[in-house]
Each structure stands twice: as structure tokens, then as C-alpha cells.
Design a protein around this nucleic acid. Structure first.
Lengths: 340, 340
DNA sequence: GTTGGCACTCCGGGGCTCGGAGTGCCAAGT
DNA sequence: ACTTGGCACTCCGAGCCCCGGAGTGCCAAC
């Protein structure tokens, strides 16, 4: 009863189940994989695997199905992230090369990821919190309303309307703008907010309320971001593929996909780049999504991480393939962010 | 054989079928509606309605189901757009009031519409083509890359990176900026592009290529918009509701929802505000969506229309309710755009 | 530790029946 | 000229049963 063979059996079960979506039996196993032993032997191994909680049978006298724990062991110890073929690499870079815009990069990434994995893809916008200010612009809308435009190092552009309690002359607007830029450019958003706090005390009374208001707007933008983030979803149509086969409840998943807060939690916090996180079934934070898994990773210029992206699909998904795709796309996005 | 009663029967059939989703028979009809006649009489009416192609039976000896033509007559002649209750009005305005941003307005509208109608909602961003330029901003990223930020009258903010063939000194950047604003502010985007054409000839050779490049970027932005537009979708989870009951093929619908071009075509071109357009089943441009209907209308400040919004659902949807919701939301969005 | 044999389990598809809801038509009623 | 009750007919679909096939666990033999 070799340990190695038992793991080989587990791997075979996972692979077969993923491709057929049907409980796999001992006989079918030895036929499709060259295990070199008889079905009876495999049955013995299966009994052990079941005892260890790695596989289960839906009903007595049915084939075996991997449990979440089984998938976990599979991805942790039985899987190499398979490198993408050079054709795939080329397709990816061609697909992302044409983007001239952060929005463009994000929307293309999400499409690409969905297409590569045939699953639902999620891409988070670069977090505001981790960006630095590249430029601040004030545009007067009416005499008491100003549009605050923030251009950030990650390419994000945020806008907020600021209502002023009193009129603001065009000259003081220009003055304010240059002061703002002086104080904020190069800073992280949180630092910028406090820098504005300092600024408040330097300017004369007339401008003081304006600076304070703008600072408040910055803080508010950040807190909103922190709670809601900003995410884009794609490949929802792929749900229909396995939604037909009903193994996954699509309703809760569709609901989750509408709630950005939920999605952010699903993606989770990736710490180091190149480390692909896999969360399987019940390991996730939501009970309703106990039959879905998430494969995600962080991206960002250099070693820094400014956002996450990943895919979500049924627990019986193609983990090696998904992990490879997620990693590859994250790398390309990071490269692009690096250049910008 | 009064015409009036036959129409009453049709209305009753539509209402019952919409609420039960099951073919409705003569007996059930007279029980649920006070028609004042016997089932036999209703059967005669039904025979006529069927001859006219307004209803059909799925199988011999089954109840009747409205045809697309039947729904058409229903919405055209048997329906008053029911006014929203004051509670609903309050809910709507409360929901949209908090928005401080065009993005905010759009995302909230789409959620609201999805929630009100329990269907999939689509909202188009204000069209670039119909907006005028409020402000142009140039932000230098590197010495040869400039971020062009366009702030438009509808509140949209567009950004594009422009690659310059040669370095641009900070002073000429500022100069260029003021010239650009002088030439473009207040213009429609297409006019702005041609105004830049004129500008090209006035400036000295050094700046000429820059102006030309920026003009080209504007044109490119517009053409991209024209082909892709920009739309937001919400309430996809509502698909699961009737996706379970399988009367509508959700796969083609999900696919359509991913293609912005398709969505724009679905929304169609609304010409006059307050005119809610209903497109039923096969009337639409896509054969795969022959079992879905679209209820849409235009919105915009005053009498002008800058974008469309609507809902899409199964042909057997609640038309009066959807029409009311669509109209109400469009009105509120228009009001908000008016203020901004 | 592996293997073939064997009895047992159980899901799931095919076929069958049957009741109920619905229809169309006709003849009688107003 | 409509409307209505009666009646024979149709047909879907839910429930039921049956049975084959795939799979299992166990045991004895290798």
C-alpha cells in the first residue's frame, strides 16, 4: 500500500472528475490511466483515501468524488502550475498591448482572463490607498461648484464634485491649484490628506474652508474606496455552461457578482506577487458559495501590489490551467503598469 | 360578439399568464376575472383571438398563451403606464439624491432600476458625441507622454495617453493647454476636433505636431465611443429567478450582456424623452433573443437626449410596471443632469 | 500487498398508466 | 344573433414500476 500510488489515484480521480463531472469508479480509472494495478487494488486505495476525507461517494455504490480537502491536497502537492505555451503568451501580449488607458487595460484583462479560463473573471482596479498623487486639477463648474480631478500614479483618474459655501474667484482657483499640487504630488493619498491639513494653516482665511473641504473630499473618497473598492467582472456567460449542468447554484453566485464588497472579500488580500492563492469551496468566507472556488493573485509594478485579479468557478474546475492563466495575466498587467 | 369583451379577454390572458407563467384556460379565466360570461363564451372569443394571431396554444388542448403580437396590442392599447406610488417616488429620489458623481448616478440608477423591476437593467453613459467640452487638461507623465483629460458638460471625464514624438517643455505644455481650452471649450466634440484643425495652422511648427496628435486622439476617442459606447448592466442575478423556470434561454442573454455593442443596439435610439419604447420578442434585432423584450427610453437635461436606459426581460414580463419604472428613473436622472 | 470472484446496492432511464385540465362542437335557450 | 350547458375527445405530465449497468465491499487465493 504505497503512499505514492495512493496519491496518484487521487490525482487521477481529480483529473477525471474535472473533465467528466461524473463520479469516477475504480474500473474506469485503471482504463484511462496507466496505473499498472487492478481495479481491486485501486478500490483498496480508495477506501483509505475516503477514510482520510479526501474523496467521498455521493451515494452508496457510486463512484468517488473529490472533497474540498482532496482538491486542496491536489493543488498543494500534486500540481505544477503548467507554463503557458508560447502561442498563448503571444496571444496574451497581443491582446493587452493595444490598451492605451487604464480602463482599457482592466477591461481587456478581464475579458482575456474569462476567455482563457472559460470562467468568470474578476479584476480589481488599482487600490487608491496604495497609489500616489501625480497631479491634482480643479475645474470650476459654477461659481460655487468645483470638480476635483485626481490623477494617480497607477493611471487611475478620480473625480469628485466639491460644493463650496462661498464663491471662488478664478485667480484664487489657480492659486489653490498650484498650492494643492505642491502639497500633494508624489504623496500617498492618505499622506496627501494630512498634508492638506498642514496647508490649511498656511493659507489665509478666505481659502481655508476650501482647502478643508477638498481635504474632506479626499478622505471621503478613500473611505468609500476602502469599503467598496472598484472591481470589474467578465465572462458571466460562462456561468451558463456549467449552470446548465446545475452542479453549481448560479443564483448566489450571480448575486455575489453584483456586490463589489463581496467580490473584494473573495479576491482577498494577496501579499506577495507571483503567489497564486486558491480558495476551495467552504474555505471561502461565504457559505452560499461553498461549491465555488477562487483562484486569485495580486498585481502591481515591481514587487509592489496595488490590486488583485482572479477567477471564480465551480470547485471542480481546472486548477492548474486557471492558476497558470491568472498568473500569466497578472504578470502582463504588472508589466504594463510598470511602463506607465 | 363584442369587440370590447374580446379585448378584455386578451388583457386577462396576458395578466394571468404574466403572473402564473402557465397557459391559461377558459375556466380559470372566468374564475379569476369578473367577466360576467360563461367559459363557453370565452372559448369562442379565444378562438377568434387565436385566428387573429394574438394568442396561441402550445399544444392541442392546452391553455392559451399570448403571442408577441398579442403583447404588442396589449401594451399599445390596453395599458396605461401606471403612475408610481408616492412611496416609490420617495424611494427613488432618496436613492439617487446621494450621488455626487456621474459614475455614482449611473451605477445607482442601474441598481435602482434592477430592483424596481426585478429584471436586468441597462444604463448607457451620456454619449460623448452629444456632449460639449467643459475643460481640457494636459498632464505630463514623462517628457514624451502626456495625459489628455477631457471634462464634458454631461459630467463625463475621459482620459487618453498621448505619445509625443519629441520632448515637450513645461512652458509650451501650459501654453498648449490654454490654447486648447480657448479653442475647444463649449464645443461639441466633433466641432472641437475640427477647431483643433484650424488651430494647427496658427501655431508655430514646434507645436504643430502636438496639436495634430491631440486632435487625432479626440477623433479616435469619438469613433471608439460611437462603435462601443459605454453601458452598465445590473440585476443579472434576477436572471436566476426566471432562469430556473427555464422559459427564457439565459445563455444568449448573458452573452449579449457582455457585448456592449449588442446592448447599445438593444437599447436603440430614443428620440423624444418620455416616450418609452417597447420592443417585444422577435421585433428585436437579435434572433437569439426572440423570447426577450426590451423596455427603454432616453434621458437627458431638458428636452435633449444624451443617453438611453431600460430593462430587458422575458416577453412575459410586467410591461406596465416596467414602463413606469423606466420612465420614472429616466426622469430623475434627467433632473439630476439638469442640475449639474 | 495484490488480485479475481461474487453477492449486493442503488441510481437513473424507459415505458406505462391515468387523471385532470382544456378544447371544439352542437343543440338548446334567450 | 349571441350565449350557454353538455359532451366527447385530446394530450400533457406526474407517478409508478421495472430493470440494467456501474460500482462497491469483502473474501479467499495467489
Amino acid at each position: 500500500m504505497s503512499e505514492a500510488r495512493r496519491l496518484a489515484v487521487l490525482r487521477a480521480i481529480v483529473e477525471d472528475y474535472v473533465s467528466t463531472r461524473e463520479p469516477v469508479g475504480s474500473k474506469a480509472l485503471v482504463e484511462r490511466h496507466r496505473l499498472g494495478v487492478s481495479p481491486a487494488t485501486v478500490r483498496n486505495d480508495m477506501a483509505v483515501l475516503e477514510e482520510e476525507g479526501l474523496i467521498a461517494q455521493p451515494h452508496t455504490s457510486a463512484g468517488r468524488v473529490p472533497t474540498d480537502k482532496g482538491y486542496r491536497l491536489f493543488v498543494d502537492r500534486l500540481t505544477e502550475v503548467k507554463p503557458m505555451s508560447s502561442a498563448e503568451r503571444r496571444a496574451i501580449s497581443r491582446f493587452l498591448e493595444g490598451a492605451h488607458d487604464l480602463d482599457d487595460v482592466i477591461t481587456r484583462s478581464v475579458r482575456l482572463l474569462a476567455q482563457l479560463t472559460q470562467q468568470v473573471a474578476i479584476v480589481q482596479y488599482p487600490s487608491l490607498v496604495r497609489s500616489t498623487v501625480r497631479h491634482v486639477e480643479l475645474v470650476s463648474l459654477t461659481s460655487t461648484r468645483v470638480l476635483l480631478v485626481l490623477i494617480l500614479s497607477t493611471g487611475r483618474v478620480e473625480q469628485r464634485v466639491v460644493e463650496l459655501p462661498e464663491e471662488l474667484a478664478p485667480e484664487s482657483l489657480a492659486d489653490l491649484r498650484s498650492r494643492l499640487n505642491l502639497a500633494a504630488v508624489g504623496q500617498r493619498l492618505s499622506d496627501a490628506a494630512s498634508a492638506l491639513g498642514d496647508l490649511t494653516e498656511q493659507v489665509d482665511a478666505g481659502e481655508r474652508t476650501h482647502v478643508a473641504l477638498i481635504g474632506a473630499t479626499l478622505v471621503e473618497a478613500m473611505s468609500q474606496e476602502a469599503s467598496e473598492g472598484r472591481v470589474v467582472v467578465g465572462g458571466t456567460a460562462n456561468l451558463a455552461r456549467f449552470g446548465d449542468g446545475f452542479d453549481v447554484a448560479i443564483k448566489p453566485l450571480l448575486e455575489a457578482l453584483e456586490e463589489h464588497v463581496v467580490l473584494l472579500k473573495l479576491l482577498g488580500e494577496s501579499t506577495s506577487p507571483d503567489a497564486v492563492t486558491v480558495r476551495i469551496g467552504h474555505e471561502g468566507p461565504y457559505q452560499e458559495l461553498a461549491t465555488t472556488s477562487v483562484v486569485a493573485t495580486g498585481y502591481g509594478p515591481g514587487q509592489e501590489i496595488v490590486g488583485s485579479l482572479g477567477v471564480v468557478g465551480p470547485t471542480h474546475m481546472d486548477y492548474p490551467g486557471s492558476m497558470a492563466a491568472v498568473r500569466a495575466v497578472a504578470r502582463y498587467v504588472s508589466t504594463i503598469l510598470d511602463q506607465a
